[in-house]
Each structure stands twice: as structure tokens, then as C-alpha cells.
Design a protein around this nucleic acid. Structure first.
Lengths: 141, 141
DNA sequence: ATTGTTGTAACTTGTTTTGTTGCAACTAAA
DNA sequence: TTTAGTTGCAACAAAACAAGTTACAACAAT
């Protein structure tokens, strides 16, 4: 069980746009080459990032730009944009036996604790913003 | 993207053993009925829990028991037992373009931050032990 | 008009999770 | 020593999902 590569590809995508959109047109094809992925895969991710309000996409002529100040975009924003889970990070087996006291209440017992885990993950993801990542990239540019 | 139900089924399994093993024989079949799963699925999970040293399984005659004090077994122990990831919770797309400064360094840039996220998740999982969960279950027994 | 791009649908491929069947090995008890 | 109930495991099937691919209409600047 792993978090999909979509998350890190989306971060990679955001970094490409942030790094290059002021000097060249950043198309799905360009990003696909940098990530070693596929333009259509990237377009799907770009669409999600746009729906989340993180980027703008130029229709027709092409190319994407960042839609917000880099300091306010965090890993959590990107994660939520491309991983449509939010409330169901952990999954349960369906229809546990309601005649068993454990089976009957497993959801009630676990929900709060699992939510705490998600919250602590979210909190840590919020600590990292795009500006920071970009600064860590810049020595290599 | 969701964490597999194996995790919550494993917690459910541990709770069944903790709740019932002193009054009856807790077999894979019994647990399968409580979780609405399959005895073989449960046996696979039981095997992982045993390998992690969390339970004992009686060969031949059958039935499982908890192998450690309930207070020292945490959700993290169970998670690590059944989700064989540990170091690769987040995944990357393979072979990013090493000619692109972002592609070339994406791993270096992200690894530490992603590890922080995993660590904060682990830390929260360690906050919840089986004893606590059992006490929360007991009102329903 | 032409060109390059996006958005999207439809399909394929590969992997993983979950379920299932079958059976040898084992242990306690009859 | 047989019997009954159970585990461990292999092999396979089914379902779900991630990722890749092909194709094409819609679009906007030149």
C-alpha cells in the first residue's frame, strides 16, 4: 500500500510551473518530459490543480501559471487537489457482523482515532509551502 | 487512494482476540464472521500479526491469543505488521528527466519532507494502544 | 486558415486487493 | 490410533484501480 505517484508528480508539476513559467510556456508536454510521464496524465493532474484554484491554464494557446502566492500553497493543498479522499483515507471492510459487539462498534471506536491520524498528517503537510520547495530547488537551477 | 481495509480489519482482529480469547477459542473462522471477511484472508493477517510478535497462534488445535501487554501494542505496531511499506509510503514516478533541474532533484528535495509526514503519522498512531481501544469497546460488551 | 495546445472520452495494460478452493500438516481428544 | 477441527499455504479468480495510450473536438493566437 502506497500513496499514488500522482501526489509527487503533482508537486513536481507545480515546481516546474513555478520555476519556468516566467521564462517559457509550460505545457503538459513539457511537464510530461520532466516527470517522464504522459501528457494526458499530466493534463488530468493539471485539471485537478486548476479545479483546486492552484493554477491557471491558458486555453487554446496552452501553458500553465501559478494562481496564488507561492507561500500560501502547501503540500496539503496539492495532496487534497489530486487525491480525492479527504474524509476516507482509511477504509473499512463492509458490513461487519452487527451481532458481534466488536463488529457492531468498530466504526464508532476507530473513527475518531483515525481522524486524529489524518489530522496530524495534514498538519505536517501544511508546514511545507511551494516557496520553500522552490528555494530548495534553486541551487540546482 | 485509500489505506487498505487490511489495516482496520487487523485492528478488528486484535480487538476480537483481546475481547474473547479468555472465554472462548478465537479462530480465523470466528474473526471472519465478525469482520464479514474470509477465513483465509484473516489467516493471512493473523500470520502477519504473529510475525510481528503481536499474537500467538495455537497450531493444530487453533485459536489466537495476544502476545504482549495490551498497553504496549499500538496502532503503529498493527499498521507496520500488515502494511509492508515502512520506507516507501509515498511513491515517485520512475526515471524523471535528469536533464531538467526539477526532474533531476525532485527526490532529494522531497524525501525529507515526505519522511516528516510519515513520522508525524507514526507518532499519532503510537498514541493509541490496544488497552485504550478495548476500554472504549467494553461498554458495548 | 494554420498551428499548437487543452479537455475529454474510450480503451488497454499492469498491479494490487480481496475472495475462493483445495489440501497437507498439526494437535487435542475420543 | 483414529477423528475432528484448525492452521498454513499454494494456486487461481474476480474486482478495483493506477497509469498509459489513442483519438479527436474545441479553442486561441498568429
Amino acid at each position: 500500500m502506497q500513496i499514488t505517484s500522482r501526489f509527487t508528480v503533482a508537486i513536481h508539476t507545480m515546481l516546474c510551473i513555478a520555476s519556468f513559467s516566467n521564462t517559457r510556456k509550460v505545457t503538459s508536454n513539457f511537464i510530461a518530459q520532466s516527470t517522464n510521464s504522459n501528457p494526458v496524465i499530466i493534463r488530468r493532474i493539471l485539471g485537478q490543480l486548476k479545479d483546486a484554484g492552484l493554477i491557471n491554464i491558458a486555453a487554446g494557446v496552452g501553458g500553465s501559471t501559478i494562481a496564488k502566492p507561492l507561500t500560501v500553497i502547501t503540500l496539503l493543498d496539492i495532496f487534497n487537489a489530486v487525491e480525492a479522499i479527504n474524509d476516507n483515507f482509511f477504509s473499512f471492510h463492509e458490513n461487519p457482523n452487527c451481532k458481534c459487539p466488536v463488529g457492531k462498534n468498530i466504526h464508532t471506536i476507530l473513527d475518531e482515532h483515525l481522524d486524529d491520524i489524518v489530522q496530524s498528517m495534514n498538519k505536517q503537510m501544511q508546514q511545507v509551502n511551494l516557496q520553500t520547495l522552490l528555494e530548495e530547488t534553486e541551487p540546482y537551477l
